[in-house]
């Protein structure tokens, strides 16, 4: 991992992008790293573009925003169209197949995050947590233990169990994905 690791989580308002950023930053801190989380959103509580950015580093974080993302998670077509250009050369693009039709690159990891969420918890809103599990499982950016603690700490009270289930699905799918790639 480079000294400064930049993650951009982008989607629509109501998809839980900002909360996902908070959970990821919290997990990084639990792992003993430094983290800064920022966000950008419009006036709508639901709908409009929404993005969360997390910078993780072993050292001090000066600029708290993404300069060139190491990881880009896209939960909407608009997010994909808009942010692909400042993904690093060999950066990782994860796109939700349910929401993104046109891929900007053949190297994208296109997986049905929302479908997995619906199957596992019956709630589409948990797709962001599935995505976090998948992202962490794929990259090892943060530990599974830290992720679980961060989910517990930040999801609305009473939803801990279903969110932990969503997280687990993400990690499992990541394992399967890695296995399928190494074949």
């Amino acid at each position: 991992m480079s000294e400064r690791y930049e993650v951009r989580l982008a989607g629509k308002g109501g998809q839980g992008m900002i909360l996902a950023g908070i959970i990821l930053a919290e997990a990084a801190i639990l792992d003993g790293k430094n983290a800064a989380q920022t966000q950008s959103y419009g006036p709508e509580a639901r709908g409009g573009a929404s993005r969360s950015e997390v910078v993780i580093s072993d050292g001090e974080i000066d600029y708290p925003k993404v300069t060139q993302a190491d990881i880009l998670l896209c939960m909407s077509q608009e997010a994909c169209d808009r942010y692909f250009h400042d993904l690093k050369q060999h950066g990782l693009l994860i796109a939700d197949a349910v929401h993104v039709e046109r891929m900007p690159t053949s190297r994208a990891v296109v997986v049905p995050l929302t479908q997995w969420a619906e199957e596992a918890t019956g709630r589409r809103i948990t797709a962001s947590v599935v995505a976090l599990g998948f992202l962490a499982g794929l990259t090892g950016l943060v530990s599974r233990q830290a992720m679980e603690a961060a989910v517990r700490a930040h999801v609305p009270p009473g939803t801990e169990e279903i969110n932990l289930r969503a997280l687990a699905v993400g990690f499992e799918q990541a394992e399967q994905f890695i296995r399928s790639q190494s074949k």
């Binding site: 800064a36 989380q37 708290p64």
Partner: peptide, 9 residues
């Protein structure tokens, strides 16, 4: 807004 809304360690 950046400092107000940002979260960090």
């Amino acid at each position: 807004e950046m400092i107000g809304h940002m979260r960090e360690k």
